[in-house]
Simulated scan of single mutants.
Amino acid sequence: MTLTEVQAKLEAGIQHSTVTMEGDGCNCSTLVVSPIFEGMSLLARQKMVLAAVRTEIDSGELHALSIKARTPAEV
């Protein structure tokens, strides 16, 4: 799975998001910025990001994903 594919999945799964990716296809890190995270705990934010790529993680297509999830005000 390419970084572009992961980015597209995250952008489709999280409303009004801007996604930045680093790493290789199976081990990568992401910064997801979205106003939808406003008022959410860090854990809830991470769960939302992981839910967007759960199928790929469960299949092993995406091995590891380091997540930073921020609101626009936090960037």
Rank of each mutant, 00 (worst) to 15 (best):
T18W: 07
R54L: 03
S41L: 09
M21D: 05
S59G: 01
Q46M: 12
A12L: 11
D24Q: 12
A8C: 04
V49C: 03
A64D: 05
I57H: 11
V19C: 06
G23D: 10
E11F: 00
M40H: 13
A44F: 08
V6L: 01
T18D: 07
L62G: 01
M1S: 01
L43C: 11
L50F: 14
V33H: 11
L43Y: 08
G25Y: 07
G13R: 07
A51L: 11
L65Y: 03
E38F: 15
I36T: 15
A69W: 03
I67Y: 01
D24W: 14
T20Y: 11
C28D: 14
T55E: 11
C28V: 11
S17C: 04
V53I: 07
L42A: 15
A73S: 08
L43K: 12
L31G: 05
V49F: 03
L62H: 02
R45W: 02
A51V: 14
S41C: 12
T2A: 02
L43W: 06
K9F: 01
E38S: 14
V6P: 00
S41H: 04
T55R: 06
V6G: 01
L50W: 13
E56Y: 05
I67D: 02
P35A: 13
G23L: 12
A44C: 10
S66Y: 03
F37R: 12
L50C: 09
K68P: 02
A64G: 08
V75D: 02
L31K: 14
G25A: 13
I57E: 09
M1P: 00
E22L: 13
E38Q: 15
E38C: 14
S66R: 11
L43D: 12
S41I: 10
E74S: 01
Q7H: 04
E38N: 13
Q15W: 09
E5H: 07
L10D: 00
V6C: 01
L10V: 00
G60I: 04
S29Y: 11
E61A: 09
S29M: 15
Q46D: 09
M48K: 15
V75M: 00
A8K: 02
I14S: 07
M48E: 13
G60T: 04
S17K: 09
A8Y: 00
V49M: 05
V6Y: 06
E56M: 09
M21A: 06
G25R: 14
T4C: 01
G25N: 13
A73C: 01
I14D: 06
V19K: 05
A52E: 06
V32S: 10
R54P: 04
L31S: 08
L42Q: 15
Q7E: 09
E38H: 13
A69D: 03
V19T: 08
M21H: 07
M40C: 10
R70Q: 04
M40F: 15
I14L: 07
K9V: 00
E74D: 04
C28A: 15
G60P: 05
